[in-house]
Simulated scan of single mutants.
Amino acid sequence: MDFRILGPLEASVEGTPLSLGGRRQQRILAVLLLRAGRVVPADRLVDCLWPLRPPATAASQIRNCAAALRRLLIAGGLPERSLVRRPGGYVLDVEPGELDRTRFDDEAHRARRSLAAGRAAEAVGYFLRAENLWRGPAIAGLADGVLEPEAMSLEESRLQVIEDRLEVELSLGRHARAVPELTALARTHPGRDRLQAAFMVALYGSGRGADALASFDRLRSSLRRELGLEPSRRLRDLRQAILTEDDARLPPTGGWGPARDGEPRRQAALLRPRGS
């Protein structure tokens, strides 16, 4: 069985979609998949279905919904032992590879392991495989109430993978190729320093230093106007490095993303336009 939460909630058996019942059963399944292999307290399921004022029959309705969901999943081929009631709650066990969120984490881990070993091009491939598991916003249509923070956490993981992959692409000299994607991402996520920095680097590395500086100016104007804030020190340092073509003025890490144990540092020279 294949469960998917990186987009609308779906379950399928050998490619055939499985009916998941009504909205309440779907929300229960979403919570169980987000905590796959761990006991989900019944109180959390109640909060998921009735965040403000649960009815007096909430506990019995949870039992009924969970039982109906269990019947649907068993009919689809899930082993009976996979969804069970435990003291205090419910637990759903899924096999390795049956949940897209787990596959996403595995591909991202392979990518970062390849990067730490110096295999940058291989890392890009794994990052892309992780990104391609996404079909839209996480648990789309269900990500409200107590599920909203879970969906936001998944989205943050997705964006971190995109940032990691783009930084590796830039380290491989693929500046011009990255510009269109970064143009859209920088516009959509003005508060993400790594994306803004990568956008400036991609433009500068493509021989478009003036555009890189203009992107910084637009961001600064937007932050001042909407939030009364200035761009981060990281971005200001990067602007100065681009403005003066002075590698000594780059951030001390020589890169633009957070350091990880064993991760190779991007060298300041990577910011220079190709052929300079």
Rank of each mutant, 00 (worst) to 15 (best):
A130I: 06
V91S: 07
D105N: 10
L147S: 14
E131M: 04
C65V: 11
E150Q: 11
H109Y: 04
E163K: 00
D100Y: 14
A116C: 08
R113H: 10
A56I: 13
P96G: 05
V168H: 04
A75Y: 05
L115T: 05
I162D: 01
V94G: 02
V94K: 01
L73E: 06
E155H: 09
R101Q: 12
A111G: 08
D100Q: 04
R71S: 11
A116G: 13
R129W: 03
L83D: 11
E80L: 00
I139E: 12
L69T: 05
S82D: 12
R53Y: 14
P137D: 09
E167H: 10
E95Q: 03
R135K: 09
P149G: 07
D164G: 01
F127C: 00
E155F: 04
L83N: 05
A58E: 02
R81H: 15
R81C: 09
P87K: 07
A66I: 06
R53F: 10
N64G: 04
I162A: 09
V161Y: 00
N132E: 15
R70I: 00
R158H: 03
A66Y: 01
E98G: 07
Y90N: 02
E169G: 08
R158V: 10
A117F: 00
N132L: 09
E148N: 09
Q160L: 08
P96Y: 08
L69F: 00
I62E: 06
G88P: 08
R86N: 13
A111V: 00
V91R: 12
T57S: 12
R70M: 11
R53G: 06
A140F: 12
L72W: 01
E122C: 04
R103H: 13
G77E: 07
A58K: 04
P96F: 03
N64F: 07
L69Q: 13
V124R: 03
L166P: 01
S114Q: 14
V84D: 01
D164C: 03
W134T: 13
A140P: 10
R101N: 05
A117W: 07
E167S: 09
E169Y: 02
